[in-house]
């Protein structure tokens, strides 16, 4: 159980609140986030425990039963869950991975996200992110850590014109302000 946030009555505060840039950019409110680290030997057990296939290629998203796992590296997954699932998910992993060879760290409050959507979304992202967003290079379902100007970011392509962008909370104002400036160049 360790450091897990339990259900509580208090409202969460978000660095993003009320700071949507334009219609194309909406904050992702709430939700629990975990960094899950596993050795190769634990992947299938953890997949079964979570009900989400974790053995997807590096830089791919996998979702099932309302739970999403973004495989950011060979031994690293970013879990995106509803807040209510935080405690049960931690418990089931602890119960099933009996050798303790894994790490689950709560990062729900470490980062915050927005969903970017629209036809010019890849133009806007390329204002600060050096990756190629051609569908052949960055297909739907791809998720990776990368950089946006001077901030670390995680980008997950949910559809051709829809991206989920996660950044650390103290970098969020910087990234949102930049997105606002860049998006003016590609006005809808």
């Amino acid at each position: 159980m360790d450091n897990l946030v339990q259900t509580k009555p208090m409202p969460r505060l978000f660095p993003l609140s009320g700071k949507a840039i334009d219609r194309r950019c909406t904050p992702v409110n709430g939700g629990a986030r975990f960094s899950l680290r596993l050795p190769a030997a634990s992947i299938s057990t953890a997949s079964a425990a979570l009900g989400v296939e974790l053995a997807v290629p590096v830089n791919r998203a996998s979702a099932a039963n309302g739970r999403t796992a973004l495989r950011l590296g060979p031994d690293e997954w970013l879990l995106l869950l509803s807040e209510a699932e935080a405690v049960p998910v931690a418990a089931v992993l602890e119960a099933r991975l009996t050798d303790g060879r894994y790490s689950l760290a709560d990062i729900s409050h470490r980062q915050t996200g927005v969903v970017l959507e629209g036809t010019a979304v890849t133009d806007i992202l390329n204002g600060g992110c050096p990756l190629d967003f051609d569908l052949a290079a960055f297909p739907v379902g791809m998720a990776t850590r990368t950089i946006f100007c001077k901030a670390e970011a995680v980008l997950w392509r949910q559809s051709e014109g829809r991206f989920h962008l996660e950044v650390w909370r103290s970098f969020a104002p910087y990234v949102w302000n930049l997105l606002a400036i860049v998006s003016r160049e590609y006005a809808v």
Binding site: N59, L72, G73, P74, R145, T146, I147
Partner: peptide, 10 residues
């Protein structure tokens, strides 16, 4: 050596 610091971290 290189580290994919803003990527997989390896």
């Amino acid at each position: 050596r290189w580290r994919h610091a803003y990527g997989c971290g390896r």
